[in-house]
Every structure is written in structure tokens, then in C-alpha cells.
């Protein structure tokens, strides 16, 4: 699924590097608990989270995640965006809550990290 499709499905707003629309992801992971992300997310996944601190960016970096979507209308703090920019990540934001964001993407064929 391309970033362009993700933005459309989630009616999301690009925050950082959103113009790189042909980048694709195969899997996604949704969590507000960064330890869970570090534990279960697969490299190259899309991360959906309601957390907006710099820890999200560090977590994504360690887990080899490049695209982060903030759910339920959350906008990342400025220092979070600056850090993400330094690491060349892509940030988008959707007004949809976590469950609905994940549900819509899953329905359209994006898989989770369980490998099932």
C-alpha cells in the first residue's frame, strides 16, 4: 500500500515528508506503548500511535520504522517533528481514532505484524 493510499484511506494530513507518496508499506502496527512497538513491530512497518513525544521517533528509529501516523487528531510536538526530520522520517496525522484507523487499513489489505 502506498503512502498516497494510506493518506486517502485515513483522510490524513501530511506533517513531514508527506510528498514522498510512492513509498510503500506492507505491514502496520498500532500502539501507544513504545515497548510493545519495540517488541512486536517488524522493520519497515507503518506505526500508528496516539503518542506524540520524541520517544515515538526514537522507537521508530530503533525498530527500523520510517512512517508514523498520529491518530485521533494528535499533532506531534515541534521537537518531535524536528527529530523526525533529522532522521528523514515521514509523519502524517489523522482525526480517526486508533481502532478505526487500524480497521480501515486492515480492511483495505494492510497486514499486521503477527505474520498471520
Amino acid at each position: 500500500m502506498t503512502l498516497h493510499e494510506i493518506i486517502q484511506i485515513l483522510q490524513a494530513e501530511p506533517i513531514l515528508n508527506g510528498e514522498v507518496r510512492d513509498v510503500t508499506v506492507q505491514i502496520a502496527c498500532g500502539s501507544d506503548l513504545m515497548s510493545d512497538v519495540l517488541s512486536f513491530a517488524k522493520p519497515g512497518a507503518l506505526l500508528l500511535t496516539g503518542l506524540t513525544t520524541v520517544q515515538v521517533i526514537y522507537t521508530a528509529e530503533m525498530a527500523d520504522i520510517r512512517i508514523v501516523c498520529f491518530v485521533r487528531g494528535k499533532k506531534p510536538q515541534e521537537k518531535t517533528v524536528r527529530l523526525a526530520a533529522a532522521k528523514n522520517m515521514i509523519l502524517i496525522s489523522t482525526f480517526l481514532p486508533m481502532f478505526e484507523s487500524c480497521g480501515r487499513l486492515y480492511q483495505r489489505g494492510l497486514k499486521g505484524c503477527s505474520g498471520i
Partner: peptide
């Protein structure tokens, strides 16, 4: 600490 996405007792097991 949970507001930062940590502190759920998963650190050491991770």
C-alpha cells in the same frame, strides 16, 4: 512514564 510509552514492565523482557 507511561505517558512516554514505557513503564509497562516490558523493558527487561524486551
Amino acid at each position: 512514564v507511561r505517558e512516554l510509552g514505557f513503564g509497562a514492565g516490558m523493558g527487561l523482557p524486551n
